[in-house]
Amino acid sequence: MIRKTPGWQARLAACLSASARADFGFGQLDCALHGASALAAMTGVDLAAPYRGRYRTLRGGLRHLRRDGYADHIALAAAHLRRREPGEAPQPGDLAVVETEEGPALAVVQGASLYLRSPAGLGLLPVSRASIIFEVP
């Protein structure tokens, strides 16, 4: 089971800080890899390891995921993390799904905010924008 390890808060903060400073790039730092990097920082488990650096477009990333049996990056997260029930309070470090113009994106819960990586940078959205919350225990 994927679980946060001691010291996860500091590692998550460093991960989010690095995400804010780095350039966006599919296969390097996109919304899916932002969520996967946060998960890896907290737990040591990198669900995106097989995909990092192997695609340069959203379509290319989806092609790799589909070859492995996942419809998309949300399905990959769903295969490994429990979905919180409606009304169940999200916790810091949980992963959230946010609907964007480009499709569903992964964001990281921090208090009442979601940290979402997009081509424009690291943005903040209210937790109420999440359509799904995945627990990172």
Rank of each mutant, 00 (worst) to 15 (best):
107 A>M: 09
63 R>P: 02
58 L>E: 14
83 R>Y: 10
11 R>Q: 06
44 G>K: 06
30 D>R: 00
25 G>N: 07
90 P>E: 04
52 R>S: 09
29 L>Y: 08
123 G>K: 05
85 E>R: 13
12 L>A: 02
1 M>H: 14
21 R>H: 10
98 V>A: 08
125 L>Y: 10
61 G>R: 04
30 D>K: 05
5 T>L: 15
105 A>Y: 01
1 M>R: 14
21 R>V: 02
79 A>R: 11
29 L>C: 07
3 R>C: 14
38 A>G: 05
109 V>F: 05
77 A>W: 06
98 V>R: 05
48 A>T: 08
131 S>P: 03
104 P>K: 13
44 G>H: 06
114 L>C: 01
96 A>P: 01
101 E>P: 12
97 V>I: 02
12 L>M: 05
105 A>V: 00
79 A>D: 11
102 E>I: 09
79 A>F: 08
124 L>G: 01
80 H>R: 07
94 D>G: 00
116 L>R: 01
42 M>G: 07
112 A>K: 15
15 C>S: 09
48 A>G: 12
63 R>F: 08
63 R>E: 12
34 H>Q: 07
84 R>G: 07
39 L>P: 00
115 Y>C: 05
122 L>E: 00
116 L>H: 03
107 A>Q: 05
20 A>S: 14
111 G>R: 05
119 P>S: 14
135 E>N: 02
94 D>K: 00
129 R>N: 06
109 V>E: 05
26 F>S: 01
4 K>R: 15
44 G>W: 06
10 A>C: 09
71 A>Y: 08
47 L>A: 04
52 R>C: 10
36 A>Q: 09
80 H>F: 12
21 R>E: 12
85 E>L: 13
97 V>P: 00
81 L>E: 03
30 D>Y: 04
2 I>H: 10
102 E>M: 12
135 E>F: 04
32 A>F: 14
41 A>T: 02
1 M>F: 14
64 H>G: 06
89 A>M: 12
6 P>R: 07
54 R>P: 04
77 A>P: 01
79 A>I: 08
117 R>W: 03
100 T>H: 06
79 A>S: 12
128 S>H: 12
90 P>Y: 04
75 A>M: 03
71 A>I: 11
2 I>V: 15
88 E>Q: 13
132 I>A: 11
73 H>L: 08
7 G>L: 02
26 F>C: 03
38 A>Q: 01
8 W>P: 01
32 A>Q: 05
120 A>R: 15
99 E>R: 14
36 A>F: 15
25 G>S: 10
83 R>T: 15
45 V>P: 02
100 T>R: 07
45 V>Q: 10
126 P>F: 10
131 S>R: 15
54 R>T: 08
127 V>H: 11
122 L>D: 00
63 R>I: 04
31 C>Y: 00
5 T>E: 14
42 M>C: 08
113 S>H: 14
70 Y>K: 08
22 A>E: 12
18 A>W: 04
134 F>D: 03
21 R>L: 13
13 A>E: 15
18 A>Q: 11
83 R>V: 15
